Amino acid sequence: MKKHVWIALFGLFGLLAVESQAQTLRWTSFEHLTDSLRKERRPVLVFIHTDWCTYCKMMELRTFSDQQVVTKLQEKFYCVRLNAEDNQPITFLQRAYKFKPTGVKTGVHELAQVLGTENGKLSYPTTVFFDQYLQLQGRVVGALDAKSLKQVIESGIVLNHLAPER
């Protein structure tokens, strides 16, 4: 019996060790993005979400924890999360954006509207891609699974991250 307990404990610790080695996506903020781009030019991915959005949570838990996605994004991109209902002002491209109330306890951040609006509508989640010079390259409205995000990143259809240095 003791032998089985020890085997189970070693197995559990082994799983925990493997789990702890799993990479997690490092997000940056808009306030740190400028400094990061000064150090090294990279394309930028902006993930627009809300706290109540089920599909946003799915992307955070599944897509942005997939090890291949994490590796590709960490190597090639700066990734920024933008909560569309955050009430903190954000400066981006030398312009200040703020939260706009639309009702009692509701509203939307101006930056989320500017970056995420497609055909006159802001939907969650929306993933916005910029090149290394912060030129808008495209946006994907709706949830992306890991396979789809890898295809978008690798295809270069939305992105032109291999553009020559200016």
Rank of each mutant, 00 (worst) to 15 (best):
D35I: 00
W52A: 13
G156H: 09
G116Y: 06
M1Y: 11
T28R: 12
R166Q: 10
A143N: 04
R166C: 05
V158I: 14
T50V: 02
V80D: 00
G11A: 05
T126D: 07
L15M: 13
K39H: 12
K100T: 01
E118W: 14
I48T: 02
T91W: 06
E154K: 11
L111S: 13
A143S: 11
M58D: 09
P164W: 13
E165F: 07
R41M: 05
E60P: 07
H4L: 14
K98W: 02
V114N: 08
S36V: 01
V69E: 01
M59T: 05
R38G: 06
L162Y: 12
R41A: 11
R38N: 15
V69S: 03
D145F: 08
H109K: 04
F99R: 06
K57R: 15
Q137K: 10
S20I: 05
F129P: 00
S20T: 05
L162D: 05
T102E: 15
E118S: 09
L82P: 13
Y124N: 02
I7K: 11
L134I: 10
G142Y: 09
Y133K: 07
A163K: 15
N119S: 14
G138R: 03
V104M: 07
K57Y: 09
L144C: 08
L115G: 01
Y55D: 08
E154L: 08
M58F: 08
Q151C: 03
T126M: 10
E110T: 01
T106C: 04
V128Q: 02
Y133N: 12
Q135H: 11
L37G: 00
Q23T: 10
Q74E: 12
H161M: 10
D51K: 07
K121G: 03
F130M: 02
G138T: 05
Y97C: 05
F92P: 01
V158L: 15
L25P: 13
F77C: 09
K57V: 14
T117S: 12
K150V: 12
L82T: 06
A112R: 03
F47K: 10
V104D: 05
L136E: 11
R26S: 15
V70D: 07
G120E: 03
V108Q: 06
V104A: 12
L122W: 02
S20K: 12
L93F: 07
N87R: 15
V158C: 06
A8L: 11
V104Q: 09
T63Y: 01
K72M: 09
I153C: 06
G156M: 06
H32F: 09
C56S: 08
V70K: 07
L159N: 10
V114P: 00
Q68S: 12
F130P: 00
L93K: 14
W52T: 15
G138L: 03
G103F: 00
M58K: 13
N160P: 08
T54W: 08
Y124W: 08
I90G: 11
